[in-house]
Design a protein around this nucleic acid. Sequence first.
DNA 1: CGCCAGGTGGGAT
DNA 2: ATCCCACATGGC
Length: 221
Amino acid sequence: MKNRLLTLYKKLLEKYGHQGWWPVFGKYHPGDYSRPADRSERFEVVAGAILTQNTNWRNADKALENLKKENLLDPKKIAGKKESKIAEHIRSSGYYKQKAKRLKEAALHFLIADAIPMDGEEMRKSWLSIKGVGPETADSILLYAYGIPVFVIDAYTKRFVKANKLTSKQNYEELREFFETNLKSENREKDVALFREYHALIVAWGKEKNISTASRRKGKS
DNA sequence: CGCCAGGTGGGAT
DNA sequence: ATCCCACATGGC
């Protein structure tokens, strides 16, 4: 095959089916690439991206639900709250004091960044300047909240690259470059849909792999 | 009980 | 540049 990445993508899609693009608004939305529809949904992606850092999505989602219940899943409300008050509601996401601070900073930035027209490069830089937003979080925001065609590299993606011997590169930027140059077409919308689905499929692959290695590890207790 | 989960920033080497 | 660590809850 000419493009190994596309071949692997098809295999993953065949095996796991459409994952949807981001598990917010209650659940995944397979096949719905029109989201997010508005500012509120974009902020939900931002909040979710921070709350899920090094944390099981289930725990992050509980925190998100708590914020929603308190009517706090809103950038202005978050930006105006004390960190300790935010922290109360997001304990389940772990690192909750740290994440309360990060969430507030992100909300503050969102209020500005979401209102100013920026190209992808500018937006990436602006998000990366926020403490608590590293490359993966920034790229998740760009791809899933704003439909900018960047490929998200996470722990699963690195394992995926290794398992399939795709490249010897390890570094975040190099890996991102690798995926993007090998997958980009002339159709931006198509790329966004592909990048969203591909990343979600890699996560599905990684989770399944975890389960099998977890059940294999035993012998104690 | 021990390990891990869709990272990040800061400090030491 | 790269390595190391703190940060923390919940599920199995």
